[in-house]
Design a protein around this nucleic acid. Structure first.
Lengths: 128, 128
DNA sequence: TAAAAATACTCCATAGGTATTTTAT
DNA sequence: ATAAAATACCTATGGAGTATTTTTA
């Protein structure tokens, strides 16, 4: 199961149409069919009922739809959070006497990194 | 960004080692490097500091780690929820006089499907 | 007969592997 | 000298497209 497939699935579900979904995400209709098929094969359950030319979500499909939405949201969240300026790199210049640096810097770097779970490293204050 | 990459990332983060991660998930070390590189390229930010032969999470990496965990959990949840017996298909046999079926069945099927947002379709009661 | 999904097939992008190089201990 | 990550290069899988068939409304 990959993001790509979940997105395709979500679009098909929104349109209740493989063809329209294909147009929206600029793919061939057959490729959309293939992706949905792969998902269904992996989850071992039908996601859509193809009744004649009508497409309807199955119960499993409905459930998956909720997850697909949440996943997409998280994906966006990641992209915006991560590229947030807080995490965008800058430069940190440290000047220390060479002998001290040799002995203490490795530990200092370690401590600095340890702080990274839960707080902004760029504002951490480290005391030895 | 794909699930596969996030998982690889998570394992590297858990081990703070590309080599160990590669062993754990049965991949070549170079492939692990490549996946991480792709992630870093896409997010346009370094996820690990490679200081000598030490690997440490950057601030961005720490943030992503949380998301990666949640994503994996959701992925598992999907697999178990979806393959849950409630959604596993069974057989439903309906016998109706042919004339009635022709006229009403399509609508009945529609109503049945409409119920799928929020409740168990298999226990829905549909009255016309 | 028209419109939509499935299928058969082809092709190419890329994920992953092997081998090697680089780098730091 | 060793251990780990990066890099170069190659191969093969599978994802996406085109064309066609099937189906039903």
């Amino acid at each position: 199961m990959e993001f790509r497939q979940l997105k395709t699935f979500r679009v098909v579900a929104d349109n209740l149409s493989f063809t329209k979904a294909a147009e929206q995400i600029f793919m061939a209709q057959s490729s959309v069919s293939a992706q949905i098929k792969k998902l269904e094969d992996e989850l071992e359950i039908k996601l859509f009922d193809r009744i004649g030319r009508r497409v309807l979500l199955t119960a499993a499909g409905c459930k998956l739809y909720e997850y697909a939405r949440r996943m997409e949201e998280m994906s966006l969240e990641i992209h915006s959070e991560i590229s947030d300026s807080r995490y965008s790199r800058g430069n940190l210049t440290i000047r220390v006497p060479e002998t001290l640096a040799f002995v203490y810097m490795p530990q200092i770097v370690d401590r600095f990194h340890e702080t990274c779970s839960g707080s902004k490293p760029s504002t951490s204050i480290i005391a030895m």
